[in-house]
């Protein structure tokens, strides 16, 4: 299998001037992925490991209006969003439209992103999921009651680091997953089959993520009790 084309090269990006600077300078805290990864990572030795780029940090820059950071996020996520939508059954045009729409939402909603709560890819996934549902239904997706995640206006850096570490771990585990298992998860997420199978899947570090969130929710509830 040949290497996937670079996310950057795949997108005929007419980047704002800032983007070229960001790429050239290495953009502190971020390295630009030079190539995409194959599905299971085995035959893409040149690919960077997941986590080489701190997408959460880039999202925080986008929240401050940093267009170069947005261009980096776009170059990475837009082709993956399109790929995700194509696998979900969207046609070429719709997949492209949704990918573009989701990235526009990323730009507009970036100030709401909380790195202490979820990784950048998780946050972008939820925007894409809701966008796909909006396409299929008249009503917006029913969401749980909103919880204020914490009293601090600034995200808790320790919590954000835990999220980052867990996210990296999960992405590495996904890369290392046997193809058959990967396809099982994909089929469930793309609505092609029951979720019963992924419910019994083992080997993915979802338990640690769940435990941390549970702890954060407990702290949140107790904080609310005091107030």
């Amino acid at each position: 299998m040949h290497l996937q084309p670079s996310a950057l090269h795949a997108a005929p990006v007419s980047a704002p001037a800032g983007m070229a600077r960001a790429v050239a300078s290495g953009c502190p805290g971020a390295s630009v992925p030079l190539s995409g990864r194959s599905r299971n990572g085995h035959d893409a030795p040149m690919s960077p490991e997941p986590g080489d780029t701190d997408w959460s940090a880039q999202l925080r820059r986008v929240a401050e209006g940093d267009r170069a950071a947005f261009a980096l996020l776009y170059a990475h996520f837009a082709p993956r969003l399109k790929s995700f939508m194509l696998r979900s059954g969207a046609g070429e045009t719709l997949a492209e439209d949704i990918a573009q729409d989701v990235m526009a939402s990323v730009w507009h909603k970036a100030p709401q992103f909380d790195a202490a709560r979820a990784g950048a890819s998780t946050w972008i996934f939820t925007i894409a999921r809701n966008r796909r549902i909006d396409d299929q239904r008249r009503a917006a997706r029913p969401e749980p009651e909103v919880l204020d995640w914490g009293p601090e206006p600034e995200p808790d850096p320790t919590e954000a680091l835990s999220v980052q570490a867990e996210t990296d771990l999960l992405h590495r585990a996904l890369h290392g997953l046997p193809q058959a298992q990967r396809e099982l998860i994909e089929r469930a997420y793309f609505g092609e089959q029951s979720h019963r199978e992924i419910a019994v899947l083992t080997g993915l570090p979802l338990g640690t993520i769940k435990s941390r969130i549970r702890l954060a929710l407990d702290r949140l509830r107790h904080g609310m009790d005091r107030s």
Binding site: P5, S6, A10, P79, K82, A118, F125
Partner: peptide, 18 residues
């Protein structure tokens, strides 16, 4: 945590040319 798995799937998709 399942949303994080969705994020992981998104992150590890082979990029499609725009």
């Amino acid at each position: 945590s399942f949303e994080a798995l969705g994020g992981g799937l998104l992150e590890t998709m082979p990029p499609a040319p725009l």
